[in-house]
Design a binder for these strands. Structure first.
Lengths: 220, 220
DNA sequence: ACTTATTCGGAACCGCAGTTCCGGATAAAA
DNA sequence: TTTTATCCGGAACTGCGGTTCCGAATAAGT
């Protein structure tokens, strides 16, 4: 139930770069600073997309996003050449947040392995069930060859694997469940929830059941 | 791993009615028998749709179905006025099969409650992960107000609830997990699997974990 | 204030998938 | 065989959503 925060909701990252070239202007292709209005619009779009995608998922028409951002479609396309690129930017932000959270748990040597895994998975589920775009991205995990967030997903898997491994070592969870199993289970749970207007409370209950299923104490 | 069969794969049901009026021709709106070719086409379409929907889901364009059935698009629309109506017919067939299977377990007083629920859920998962259309239908469960299979889903829930209740009584599973929880968990599991080219074997493993999670023996 | 490189905005374009329509084919009744 | 009610087939229509394009607007340098 505790919220782990890493960056403010509106923080961008990924390949968004509304800043001036800042540092090394060095020898070659330095990016010229964006015009003031361009920079403002860029951010507006990102924020609008973040809100709308979280609520309605990728399915929403870009016109809506543009409208919400108070910007023309042309402008939107100037900043993000493709709908997918916009989606990607958002999801990348989300994944980075998740990665950061995972790191917190990995570096935290206070709490014991089982609890750490448990806590992270719950946070994972919370994020995924709150941001619809996130779990839609999770769905296509294996599919979409091109989109860049797939590689980030691999990083996430790696992080979870660390937590899982530790929990296995400490005897908290079964050794015969892989990280992919866990991810499938968690994202599946979120999915089922997402399509039924189920709130986070309910999702957490389902996650509890899944976690109970991967614990050592469980019978076969 | 045992396969429960109820009807041959090609059997139709639902609102398909390629037969002659057969029985009561009684007083009013009796349906005239279809012309021979019409009847043949009707069945062809149903069969083609069953195969394609199972493999590719609803997303597939109807042209493909028509082609596969060796029939023009116009013909397809003559028999099913809407893509959804065709989809509905297929899913209804599937749900009926599932319902019949559930009944088998309900009526079978040999096996004990826990095992019965376990067996049915596995069969449920198998069907849902094999027939893509089925779990896509499962997804929209709460959403699509109009489509008729939603009511059938309720019947399914009722059946599962019987099995669950018995298993709770016999002390096999926890009393704090509802039937909807179980369905969400199972269909969620299938979903995660479906989007990663995971075979039934893998799905069954995930289901095992879920089942372990709802059993009495589990710790919190 | 003037100039211009850059950005804005949204009408128009394009392709895709569902659906309609109707002239031609045909099963089956006469 | 002729007739005709029914059915077939697929070209064309429709609406939707992503993307392109270019004249108008404007930030920022002189």
């Amino acid at each position: 139930m505790s919220e782990v925060r890493t960056g403010s909701p509106g923080s961008m990252s990924a390949d968004a770069r509304p800043e001036t070239p800042s540092a090394t202007d060095s020898d070659a292709l330095a990016v010229k600073p964006m015009r003031a209005d361009a920079q403002r619009n860029h951010e507006r779009i990102l924020q609008a997309a973040e809100e709308i995608f979280a609520l309605d998922g990728v399915a929403v028409p870009i016109d809506i996003v543009a409208e919400r951002a108070g910007v023309g479609i042309g402008t939107l396309y100037r900043h993000f050449p493709t709908k997918e690129s916009l989606f990607e930017a958002i999801v990348l932000t989300r994944l980075n947040e998740l990665l950061a959270i995972a790191d917190v748990f990995i570096l935290d040597s206070e709490t014991e392995p089982g609890a750490a895994l448990d806590a992270f998975l719950r946070e994972f589920a919370r994020q995924a069930s709150e941001k619809r775009d996130l779990f839609e991205a999770l769905d296509q995990a294996g599919i979409d060859i091109k989109s860049r967030f797939v590689e980030r997903l691999d990083e996430l898997v790696a992080r979870i694997d660390i937590l899982r491994e530790r929990a296995v070592q400490s005897g908290d969870i079964r050794s015969d469940v892989g990280t992919h199993d866990i991810m499938n289970l968690i994202s599946g749970t979120c999915h089922a929830a997402g399509h039924s207007g189920v709130d986070n409370q309910e999702v957490q209950r389902l996650v509890s059941i899944v976690i109970a299923g991967i614990q050592r104490t469980s019978s076969v």
